[in-house]
Design a protein around this nucleic acid. Structure first.
Lengths: 215, 215
DNA sequence: CGCGGGTTTGATCCCAGTCAAGTCCCGTGG
DNA sequence: CCACGGGACTTGACTGGGATCAAACCCGCG
């Protein structure tokens, strides 16, 4: 019935959607493009909390708690659909299925974050890297974003990967070097040559990709 | 109006509420006691995803996605209130404010997890430890669980802390030793002697404790 | 008194961080 | 057309924080 959309937003690579600590009057779903969600520590270092892919909802928790937990930045040109925060109670009242879907998404997010925590806390650089590349590839492929040879768009720089994995850029590079015949990264694409071998490096089953329902 | 509660659950120290991977027919709120939410990796190591304190909701994401993301285990005797998963749509339909509150809680959880990720990814052992102790103390104190000298219940073992911080038990111990005049841990209690100094070690402002609304 | 779980401490090792040079690639301007 | 400059990626040498291994130690309990 009612349409809660409130316009679309276009971002260029490097544009910031919102900053950590900002109070948000909107939240968003990603229509296309990829980005990252960062926290910045006192000393200026960054930690990427998660990648932002098409279909993801972002800024919801920031809308609800009144303060964005992290900065969202585009890694490629992005297009997002915008929703007004203050119509959220209305949505919950009038469209409970959609509200349910929204909560489902938040719950799924939590699930992912748990895996990231386990990875950062307990896995070696090689395992983390293999795991992350596999996850990224699987999720994007599940969204249908792969081309004929199974390569998916990958606009991130090694520094971004390092921020995500909790590693230094130098060591990230050296680790990627060790995976070079399993994985090809270049000109904005990521291609996995040997899924099984990569999974073995990650030392964890691929665990089917859990596509999220769109809002 | 309608009451969605479906009984209470009592756990003894060490009891498992549910295991990672289980499909949950219920979710819970914690009435009293403390626990931990763990993931177990292939190699048998554990990573604590977060601590479970009174007022927390747990198992919600597991209910929604059909599979618990982690194991919840009691670190002290616990009492929980149980809710049926399959009445959730009903709740969303008939009591939108409560549904909203539930989503709010999930969002807050996400916020916390983001901080944990940043800590695991970028901070040193000393920073992590100080940060965690400070967080724990602040949250429990905000719940009113402190006694006259400001000590809060702390049923966790050093091994639990190590699992939470992504450190080895040995190194956790050595790090705690370095904090010994700032913090007293013993006989199930945690007391912070010098808040400011601890915060300095954590290298991050305490950031007021964000009490969560009960369901 | 002996046993077992948790804590403490020391010695040694190694993974990943840091520092320091390149190299490669591309866009800009002379 | 080529020289220059800057950003990302590589690679090597060295260092250090935290893991691992190995012993005690310290209870509370049967």
């Amino acid at each position: 019935m009612m349409d809660f959309r409130d316009g679309e937003v276009d971002l260029a690579r490097g544009d910031v959607l919102f900053e950590e600590g900002a109070s948000l009057s909107h939240f968003y779903t990603v229509l296309s493009g990829q980005g990252g969600r960062y926290k910045t520590l006192e000393n200026g270092e960054r930690q990427m909390v998660n990648f932002v892919f098409p279909g993801d909802v972002t800024g919801l928790s920031g809308s609800l708690t009144g303060e964005a937990a992290a900065t969202v930045q585009a890694a490629s040109p992005m297009r997002l659909c915008r929703f007004r925060k203050n119509r959220l109670p209305e949505l919950f009242r009038d469209q409970s299925e959609r509200a349910y879907a929204l909560t489902y998404i938040a719950a799924t997010e939590e699930h992912f974050l748990g895996e990231i925590i386990a990875t950062l806390g307990r896995r070696t650089a090689l395992q983390r890297t293999a795991w992350a590349l596999l996850r990224i590839h699987t999720r994007l492929a599940a969204l249908g974003l792969h081309d004929a040879d199974g390569a998916v768009p990958f606009p991130y720089r090694q520094a971004d990967l390092a921020d995500a994995l909790g590693l230094s850029v130098v060591h990230t590079n050296k680790t990627l070097a060790r995976l070079r015949d399993l994985v090809e990264i270049g000109s904005g694409r990521l291609k996995v040559n040997d899924h099984a071998a990569l999974a073995e490096q990650a030392l964890t089953e691929p665990e089917p990709p859990r596509v999220r329902p769109l809002l």
